[in-house]
Design a binder for these strands. Structure first.
Length: 228
DNA sequence: CCTTGATCATAT
DNA sequence: ATATGATCAAGG
């Protein structure tokens, strides 16, 4: 899929961005793909990021693979989230890759996780696999920042996981660690390797990991929105 | 049925 | 290999 064009220029502020996202609510993937002039895959098995890219295109997010937020100039990160018929998330949400080395002295306040999650535009999208991709619709968007409780939960999990990484325990971490934030593989396959700290402080090669938000965290966040 | 671990595409 | 965008699918 070639898409280094932007259907819209970058939104100048949050209000414009939100209005633009609200205007997409109710449209189907098929409609948005057709109006953007891009091909629609028959399913997402080989195009897992397709929905996210489509929304980036329509909302004027920066294309490419820069290590920045989607709307860096207004400090907003875009997250599409697949939901069921009742608006509940069907998948966890990838946040960012976990740094496995060079972590001496890192703190929550300046972490990539916190930075990415300070302001998020959530765009729910129908994700039930029984619905053909072209017929799945965009839901009502939500501009969100973590409240005090959410931030505390995130910070606790992040600190626990980072402690284990720094102490050379990365290979003992499973997706069961963490209440709301979990560490899972984030790689092309199980043979991809990256450097990390071993149990005796020595360099080791291990699977790249990423931070993911569990559904128990995103579900209430979205539910609150639908109650308003 | 749901979660965990694995995986897919693309650009740099 | 690492960053972006995530969902798939085996098995508990």
């Amino acid at each position: 899929m070639a898409a280094d064009i932007t259907l819209f220029p970058a939104p100048e502020n949050e209000q414009v961005l939100l209005a633009r996202a609200q205007a997409l609510a109710g449209f189907s993937m098929g409609e948005l793909a057709a109006r953007a002039g891009i091909a629609i895959p028959r399913d997402l098995r080989r195009d897992k990021g397709w929905v996210g890219m489509l929304l980036e295109l329509w909302l004027g997010a920066s294309a490419g693979s820069k290590a920045e937020r989607d709307f860096a100039h207004i400090g907003v990160e875009l997250k599409t989230i697949p939901v069921d018929g009742q608006g509940r998330p069907l998948e966890t949400t990838f946040v960012c890759v976990a740094p496995l080395t060079g972590n001496t002295g890192v703190v929550w306040q300046t972490s990539h996780v916190r930075h990415k999650l300070t302001r998020v535009l959530w765009v729910p999208v129908e994700g039930d696999r029984s619905i053909a991709l072209a017929q799945r619709r965009i839901g009502s968007p939500l501009l969100w920042s973590p409240n005090q409780e959410e931030e505390s939960l995130l910070q606790r999990d992040w600190e626990e996981l980072m402690d284990l990484i720094v102490l050379g325990q990365v290979e003992r971490i499973t997706a069961r660690h963490g209440e709301v934030l979990q560490l899972r593989p984030k790689a092309a396959n199980s043979k991809a390797l990256t450097e990390a700290i071993g149990e005796h402080g020595q360099p080791i090669m291990t699977l790249p990991r990423g931070f993911y938000l569990k559904k128990t965290f995103t579900a209430p966040l979205l539910a609150r929105h639908f109650l308003l």
